[in-house]
Design a protein around this nucleic acid. Structure first.
Length: 976
RNA sequence: GCCCCCGUGGCGGAAAGGCAGACGCUACGGACUUAAAAUCCGUUGACCGCAAGGUCGUGCGGGUUCGAUUCCCGCCGGGGGCACCA
């Protein structure tokens, strides 16, 4: 409120020299009509270099744009405008990611059909984005909910459905290819009972692992054949335990779960087995990992993806079941438990073994007297939601199953347990437990009194006695690898196991296949029909798009039955006299955003998702800016789809986004919270009032835990004015015994610290808003918003106007003259051109703007300003503050927009100065400065430096041990 | 617990290993004004000093270097990611 009234008063009493509201409107209209930002198709572009500058498109929420959106969008806009002036053919588009949960939740809350709210929200977003003066090519706008768009989302899905992953060539191929291969091949049944393929001889090991049973393809029934083929598709159905969120009425992908709760809304999620669509992203794990190396991305973004993919290299080791006792209970003599371990070198230290509670071998191995315990434990585990499991910190539970396994290296008989700290979904669902060298195994062994046997000793010192030694070292108590360092021991023991047929080198991933179906209405329908056996069939390409039916009641059913099942008419499908039903699940939010950057290239094409010639010209994106929050979800999914399209020959690059940058979060305005510093006890609003300090309204308080006393405190919000710094902390001016915590919080409705771009643009104008956000700090850093500081940019723009156009109430301050600028100004101009020309591609907008301010400060107060300097200044200002720049450009006598005017050139020769100033240090401390001719030699410089007035006393009576001259930088004397 | 990033004035932030604090905000002083706003001109890291000038100073402690905000090692503090992944 304060800043708002300030701005209004400011404007009323003292009108700004230029009317930003009218000026900005004028140029926005011009840009929409004249379309100076249209990207040229390759056939028209001649030899212009191309640049694809991409934003992460927003999902148009009901709340409208927040100040974080324009941060990234302004950054790409500056780059786009700059590159156009540099002669590039720039593709800079915008669109709407409008399907998905948030849009649908918003519609349900208001009881309005999502199609209507979505359209309204899009219109509002478009208005806000245009209000900021962003130079998008609006003829390329895309909308993921438009049937003309999702037709191609469905088409790409069918590409996945109709493909499989060839493990030998490590790439996707058409499923028809697989069917041909199968005619002469065999399929295999893997040890866990699942049917696996052997498509091409050598691929057997890669796909099937241990081969147990073989049958010829021709002996299979058509239905069996079908199931095998379907099981290899990149888009497939499976009944698996999934994350079911009752509150949202849908399943969610692993990526959408945070701390056991839904990313959207924070609702609890439970595990349930359901038949769902999955995309085989795991097949691409290695390539998604390896190709990260080729990308110009922030290090931590790559790291995030690496962690998410979670590749670990180790070995699978087979443990036989201890003889007769196993057979008694019907376990086959051939039964083995295969474990995965990253530390095969600790095999001698395995003193027990753990299976996941759901492991299929448990039933066959369990001793009859243990059956009850096992059943109880399993019930206990399955009743727990993932959230409960997480809540129970690290307390280990488990049950002995009454059977033993044989350690293949030393024939030790070790007990087999089940425990919920072993997950069926990772590795083989079974581990060898080495309590001496693994924290979890150690905790478990302590609790169940299992022996702990050290088999690795540290390179230096002793292993601690009270905890496991998890580092690398030297193998001990391990006959075949004793004395070997860990890396070598791993390799040697793995080779030995492989030779004896007890193990094999193995790689595991945390990445799971992508759960791709949702039980919601507002998403792309699957282009799939099902027969009575729920076999899936693709609809013909000619039937695309499969339109989302209009439904009066589109709300989630609260059961896994999707809302589309209510569209009975729509769901019926007949072909060739056979009856099918349509798939009623819909695709998740991420589907449309997986490929939108391709559609921008050729948005109107009705024949193809993108024209190959245009695709080849524009891809890949040269700059992609968006929030970190998409570092795993959107960016991983997109890369996966892109690679599939690449394998199938539909796109020309293996990666979609060559250079990625994340803009930092803009936090809310700094808040000051006062609390008792002595003991951290809570301080009340009354107490503050007692010491004559106002608490800010009913504003949010902050709660925390006092570091020293570990007491909870409640901190009341106070005004910045009441606060002062005392040593390393802030205190209340009037009562220094009260500590004040200064912090900026994430903007949120509940904190009430959200800044609305509409307000800022209304009060200060779009140019000022853009400048302010870019001047705030480095693009990638998080930084707090401070409305107070905006006035600096407002003053700058007004000053530019006064200097180059004049003040309408007062006289023009300076004359624009057709003469070259004075020498120092000329040098400064060339310096500024160089600096800004370097800063923009490096996205260092804050320092670029500082240079513009500096140059403008030099112009202030001059009686005349060179036309050349004025023009260059305006051209450099244009990417940052395009409206005012266009207006001044016009007033400087130009009829044509500067949007494609050539960027100013700098001249190195103009930067050379005849004399330079050098700091002189003595023992690293600055003592004086000297001015010498730019071409002076070292001897001259040292002589001048030694005789400098303020240097002499420091050299008096001392010996100069060393003279250092850092060329054109500084002089340093070492004396003693 | 593991991984990544960050600590510079009252605030946002500048500094290819070379003048720490560019530029903006705030605050203070001055000019203009009947007055205020706006604008323009100064000062604004801390300490000592009338001044010239000096000392200290980039979270803390070491190291490398003629020279470290920058590079290395070890702490402390803040933020983010992953989290029973074998």
């Amino acid at each position: 409120m304060g800043e708002l009234t300030f701005a209004m008063r400011f404007r009323k009493i003292n009108p700004m020299p230029y009317n930003f509201t009218a000026t900005e409107k004028k140029w926005q209209h011009y840009w929409l009509d004249a379309k100076p930002f249209a990207a040229l198709d390759p056939s028209q572009a001649g030899d212009m270099p191309k640049a694809y500058v991409l934003d992460m498109f927003p999902y148009p929420s009901g709340a409208g744009l927040h100040v974080g959106h324009p941060e990234g969008y302004t950054a790409t806009d500056i780059v786009s405008r700059f590159l156009r002036m540099k002669g590039y053919n720039v593709l800079h588009p915008m669109g709407w990611d409008a399907f998905g949960l948030p849009a649908e939740q918003y519609a349900i809350e208001r009881n309005i059909h999502p199609a209507i709210t979505t359209q309204k929200n899009i219109d509002n977003f478009r208005r806000q984005i245009q209000m900021i003066g962003l130079s998008y090519d609006w003829d390329r706008e895309v909308n993921t909910t438009d049937p003309r768009y999702y037709k191609w989302t469905q088409w790409i899905f069918l590409q996945l459905f109709n493909s499989y992953f060839d493990p030998i060539e490590k790439k996707a191929k058409p499923i028809s290819h697989l069917v041909n291969e199968l005619l002469n091949e065999t399929y295999v049944v893997a040890p866990d009972g699942s049917v696996k393929l052997n498509p091409i001889g050598e691929g057997m090991k890669a796909i099937a692992g241990e081969v147990r049973v073989e049958r010829a393809w021709s002996e299979l029934s058509p239905q069996e054949q079908r199931e095998i083929v379907d099981g290899q598709r990149l888009a497939y159905m499976d009944e698996i335990p999934v994350n079911w969120c009752p509150a949202l009425g849908t399943v969610l992908s692993n990526e959408e779960i945070i701390d056991g709760k839904s990313e959207r809304g924070g609702f609890p999620v439970e595990r349930r087995p359901l038949r769902q669509w999955l995309l085989r992203i795991t097949a691409y794990a290695d390539r998604l990992l390896e190709d990260l190396e080729t990308l110009d991305w922030p290090g931590f973004s790559k790291e995030l993806q690496k962690n998410w993919i979670g590749r670990s290299v180790g070995a699978e080791v087979d443990f036989e079941i201890a003889g007769a006792r196993g057979e008694e209970r019907g376990a086959s003599k051939d039964d083995v438990i295969t474990v995965f371990t990253t530390r095969p070198d600790t095999l001698y230290g395995a003193t027990y073994m753990v299976l996941a509670p759901e492991h299929p071998l448990v039933d066959r191995l369990v001793a009859s007297d243990r059956k009850n315990d096992i059943a109880n434990y399993r019930a206990q585990v399955s009743s727990k939601s993932d959230r409960d499991r997480l809540a129970e910190t690290r307390d280990k539970t488990g049950v002995f199953i009454g059977a033993y396994a044989i350690n293949p290296v030393n024939d030790d008989k070790i007990p087999i347990y089940i425990a919920d700290y072993v997950l069926m979904s990772y590795g083989t669902g079974a581990i060898m437990a080495v309590p001496a060298h693994d924290q979890r195994d150690f905790d478990f062994a302590k609790k169940f009194n299992i022996p702990i046997r050290p088999v690795v000793k540290p390179l230096v010192g002793e292993a601690p006695a009270d905890k496991p030694f998890e580092g690398e070292g030297i193998a001990i108590n391990s006959p075949i690898i004793d004395g070997m360092p860990t890396a070598q021991a791993k390799e040697h023991i793995t080779e030995t196991l492989a030779r004896e047929g007890n193990g094999i080198k193995s790689v595991n991933y945390k990445l799971r296949d992508w759960l791709f179906s949702r039980q919601r209405y507002w998403g792309e329908p699957f282009p799939i029909v099902l027969d009575e056996q729920t076999n899936a069939y693709a609809v013909d390409d000619s039937e695309l798009p499969v339109q989302l039916p209009e439904l009066a009641d589109y709300k989630p059913t609260g059961t896994p039955q999707p809302p589309l099942s209510k569209a009975v008419e729509w769901g019926r499908y007949e072909k060739d006299g056979k009856t099918f039903t349509r798939e009623t699940n819909t695709m998740p939010q991420w589907a449309g955003s997986c490929w939108y950057y391709l559609r921008y290239i050729d948005p109107q094409n009705e024949e193809r998702f993108v024209d190959p010639v245009k695709e080849k010209y524009w891809m890949s994106a040269d700059l992609y800016i968006g929030g970190v929050e998409h570092a795993v979800l959107h960016l991983l999914y997109s890369r996966f789809w892109h690679k599939v399209l690449y394998d199938l020959g539909h796109v020309s690059t293996p990666e979609p986004f060559q250079r990625l940058v994340h803009q930092g979060l803009i936090l809310g305005q700094m808040e000051f919270h006062a609390f008792s510093s002595a003991d951290g006890s809570p301080i009340s609003a009354d107490e503050l009032t007692d010491i004559k300090e106002e608490v800010i309204g009913a504003g949010p308080t902050m709660t925390g835990v006092h570091k020293q006393s570990r007491q909870k405190y409640v901190a009341q919000r106070v005004d910045e004015e009441m606060v002062q710094k005392a040593g390393p902390k802030f205190v209340l001016k009037s009562n220094p015994s009260i500590t004040v915590d200064a912090r900026a919080f994430k903007m949120s409705k509940s904190r009430g610290n959200v800044v609305n771009p509409d307000d800022i643009v209304r009060d200060y104008g779009a140019d000022c808003f853009r400048l302010y956000e870019m001047y705030l700090g480095p693009l990638e850093a998080s930084k707090p918003w401070n409305t107070r500081d905006i006035v600096g940019m407002s003053r700058f723009l007004n000053s530019v106007w006064r200097n180059l156009v004049g003040d309408e109430e007062r006289n023009r301050v300076a004359k624009i003259v057709n003469e070259p600028p004075s020498e120092p100004l000329d040098r400064m101009m060339h310096y500024t051109i160089r600096k800004i020309t370097e800063d923009i591609p490096n996205l260092r907008f804050n320092t670029a703007i500082a240079e513009l301010i500096k140059l403008n400060n030099e112009l202030t107060g001059l009686e005349s300003i060179s036309q050349e300097l004025a023009e260059n200044f305006v051209l450099m200002l244009a990417p940052f503050a395009p409206h005012i720049a266009e207006e001044i450009w016009q007033r400087l006598g130009h009829e044509r927009s500067l949007a494609r005017h050539a960027w100013p050139q700098f001249d190195e020769k103009k930067l050379v100065e005849s004399s330079i100033e050098l700091p002189v240090q003595v023992n690293g401390k600055l003592r004086d400065k000297i001015t010498v001719p730019a071409d002076a030699d070292e001897a001259t410089i040292f002589a001048a430096a030694e005789n400098a007035e303020r240097v002499k006393p420091w050299l008096q009576g001392k010996t100069i041990r060393k003279r250092i001259y850092a060329s054109r930088k500084l002089v340093n004397f070492v004396v003693g």
